[in-house]
Design a binder for these strands. Structure first.
Lengths: 193, 193
DNA sequence: AGTAAATATTAATCTAGTTTAACATTATTT
DNA sequence: AAATAATGTTAAACTAGATTAATATTTACT
């Protein structure tokens, strides 16, 4: 029905007047990134909240041993930034990098603060979005503790089949908290059964 | 300065007029639970958001093998409920049980929805609270993957010294995702070094 | 089409953390 | 004060998953 995929998405949470939509659109920017480009780099302050129109990103953390740990993947209709860095405007713990050419809508930090003043309803929108994200994050912690890797992989596959198809397996292994070798073994076991 | 510890807490995020404070206070209930009492039970719909005035709770999940997994501990000035159940009003995945006699402020689901209408500023309050909780949750996932148990325990101890003193070690082990026996070994190693 | 780079598999060896089980200590109740 | 329940420790045997290293396979580039 709706023109803009972002307005479409928003309409699941709140209803904006045409005037509010205009204000909102005036304060956001659409931007294209190429595969492998960084949206956020560890150590930089994350200045934007990013809504993905198309494409795919990985959010990851490089530990003291130089190892990469995937925090999340993001695809169409989801968000992608270092929220901790964004809300506190302090250096990012995470990197966000494009796994595909990616088109996204960006909220600049200052613009978003202004938007909250102009359209208080947006507080509700983001409250609801973050609530959901938080709940998913808690459930992931529990899964990591209470299920063996094979089960976690099956759930990942069932929950995000699109991501599983688009993303290399060594990154999925990292997301699941296991090595690529062990994921390979698990997949073998699942097939040969 | 402030009379009520909950209003005190809120004032860190938003400023309410005296009138708004009155409305808010009229829609919340203070309640006392005894040690071991349940605030939420797995399978029930969580009807309240609970802010702890004093005391301590554990939020946990019983897995298919009957094993308990600690999701979080909550003490004074923090929240304690199954947020997933609360926001969707569907059966809870988690139990919330008091580890001490606990005094808390309860927001009933319907009351909170009304409050959001009457005091839209509260959307901002809860947006900010959940943002912080989400960020902490993401960081916990990363720590669980990138650090060995001994480091996780040290960080837990440094971050929540109060909780570490008040809560039995087998529950802390569960929170860290390890067995009580292994935590005992770790503590021994830390002392004897 | 041919080569290099990126991704995936396999298998042997190793280790962080589990399991089991027995015992020690600390609280709580009567 | 004794008895019981709850919590904590120790140690041996075990396992899920890591590490290392060699080899395949797929993808992208010239």
């Amino acid at each position: 029905m709706n023109k803009n995929p972002f307005l479409e998405y928003i309409s699941k949470f709140i209803t904006l007047t045409p005037k509010e939509e205009t204000i909102l659109l005036s304060k956001i920017v659409q931007r294209n990134y190429l595969k492998d480009q960084y949206i956020v780099q560890q150590g930089d302050v994350c200045k934007t909240a990013n809504f993905i129109i198309s494409g795919c990103t990985k959010t990851y953390y490089i530990d003291l041993e130089g190892q990469e740990h995937i925090v999340m993947f993001s695809i169409e209709d989801w968000w992608s930034s270092d929220l901790g860095s964004f809300i506190t405007q302090t250096p990012a713990d995470f990197n966000v990098q494009c796994l595909e050419n990616t088109k996204l809508i960006q909220f600049n930090y200052e613009n978003l603060e202004e938007l909250y003043k102009e359209i208080p309803k947006l507080e509700r929108l983001f409250r609801k979005i973050v609530e959901r994200a938080y709940v998913a994050s808690q459930k992931r912690i529990i899964r990591n503790f209470s299920l063996p890797a094979k089960e976690r992989y099956k759930i990942f596959n069932a929950t995000y089949p699109k991501i599983n198809q688009r993303v290399p397996q060594y990154l999925i292994a990292s997301y699941l908290g296991i090595t690529k070798e062990f994921l390979s073994k698990i997949k073998n076991q699942l097939v040969s059964k």
